[in-house]
Design a protein around this nucleic acid. Structure first.
Length: 263
DNA sequence: ATGGTCGAGTATCGA
């Protein structure tokens, strides 16, 4: 079973690239972030024609998250579950796909230290942990993926010195992500790859992509039962190239689960 | 030269 996450940075602009990508990457499940669409604008019919059922949680203009699945999509939860303080934005959606509890997340950026948005980011990550505690058990097949807007370690940014005093690398942000791992999740890419210079995001500006000045801020987190079934992990840098790319690359995992059996 | 580009929407703000 192949599951991918991709911050598409406007699905309206990116739809041709997403369709092209589905055609060659052939994921069973694709989580998207920053669709920047209202639910009424989401092209569910187009995805249906490509064989994917979908759920979308968006309010238009900013944020917006989705899950596409060709292995079933059940029990959707839009935003944080009951019992967790509601989100002001549309930044996560959860559903069961082929026996895996999947959550697609777009963690707030934080903007700057001391900005109210930074506190919102930390609160949001705490609420994400509460959401998982309410809706899943770490002994199940649980996968949480998306744009975390946090680089877990210094080796996950192209030049740690340049990020001192910035968001994405601070101890509180990293501890908030580590708290998700403490609950029972594992960083899929780091389970397979220890090398430096593995990034999923490159700023559009200043030729950052060609200079490989990037950050690893998109993550796939797996519960133990999925970690033992993890076959490989890939960052598709090809999708960051060419005409009208997103500033993020897709991140894919292959899991040794029979889709039919899981369903 | 301490910026640089996108995408929202149509002046700037957010990333």
């Amino acid at each position: 079973m192949r599951i991918a996450t991709w911050n598409v940075n406007s699905l309206k602009v990116r739809m041709p690239r997403v369709e092209e990508w589905l055609d060659y990457a052939k994921p069973d499940v694709l989580c998207m972030q920053e669709t920047k669409l209202a639910d009424s604008q989401f092209p569910a019919l187009a995805f249906s024609g490509l064989g994917y059922e979908s759920v979308h949680h968006g309010s238009g203009q900013w944020n917006g998250v989705a899950i596409l699945s060709r292995v079933g999509i059940d029990n959707p939860i839009y935003g944080f579950c009951q019992g967790v303080e509601a989100d002001q934005d549309t930044r996560l959606v959860t559903a069961t796909c082929g026996g895996v509890k999947v959550t697609s997340v777009y963690v707030p950026n934080g903007r700057a230290l001391g900005d109210p948005h930074y506190d919102y980011k930390l609160s949001w990550l705490e609420r994400l942990r509460a959401h998982l505690e309410h809706t899943a058990d770490p002994s199940e097949h649980v996968l949480v993926c998306g744009d975390f807007n946090v680089a877990p370690e210094d080796r996950d940014v192209w030049d740690p010195k340049r990020f001192v005093g910035s968001t994405h690398v601070t101890e509180p942000e990293r501890k908030a992500v580590a708290s998700l791992l403490d609950w029972g999740l594992h960083d899929a890419l780091r389970a397979k790859h220890q090398e430096d210079r593995l990034y999923t995001y490159w700023d559009y500006r200043a030729g950052d992509f060609h200079q490989h000045r990037g950050m690893r801020i998109d993550l796939v987190l797996l519960s133990e039962s999925l970690l033992t079934r993890l076959e490989w992990v890939l960052i598709d840098r090809f999708a960051r190239k060419g005409k009208l790319p997103s500033d993020h690359a897709p991140l894919l995992v292959d899991l040794a689960i029979e889709e039919a059996a899981a369903r």
